[in-house]
């Protein structure tokens, strides 16, 4: 019973703190980077879709490592699915 009460208490504190900070964050947002991307993405990268412009040009370094995550996961799954005698 005490455990459940503590859990509900903690969850309500978390909810209150989260909602307060999120409402405060809405009031003062820095829009300088958003304005920059809206203004310059089409002329810089030639992409009408700003998401692709950021994903494949401004932040290409990040997306390459995101692609490498998938290859690591796939190689792990294939390694585990092989039988003992197939792995050299």
């Amino acid at each position: 019973m005490i455990k459940k009460c503590m859990l509900i208490f903690m969850l309500t504190i978390l909810l209150v703190v989260f909602s307060r900070t999120s409402f405060q964050a809405i009031q003062n947002i820095d829009t300088s980077s958003k304005d920059y991307y809206l203004k310059n993405t089409y002329s810089d990268t030639g992409s009408k879709n700003i998401v692709t412009g950021i994903y494949l040009d401004y932040r290409l370094f990040d997306s390459i490592f995101e692609a490498s995550i998938l290859i690591i996961a796939v190689s792990g799954i294939i390694f585990m699915s092989k039988k003992d005698d197939e792995v050299v």
């Binding site: 585990m80 092989k82 039988k83 003992d84 792995v87």
Partner: peptide, 14 residues
């Protein structure tokens, strides 16, 4: 599922 033979063949790697 019925398997004839040794159970060693049914091992995975881990």
């Amino acid at each position: 599922v019925i398997n004839h033979g040794k159970y060693d063949e049914l091992k995975g790697i881990f």
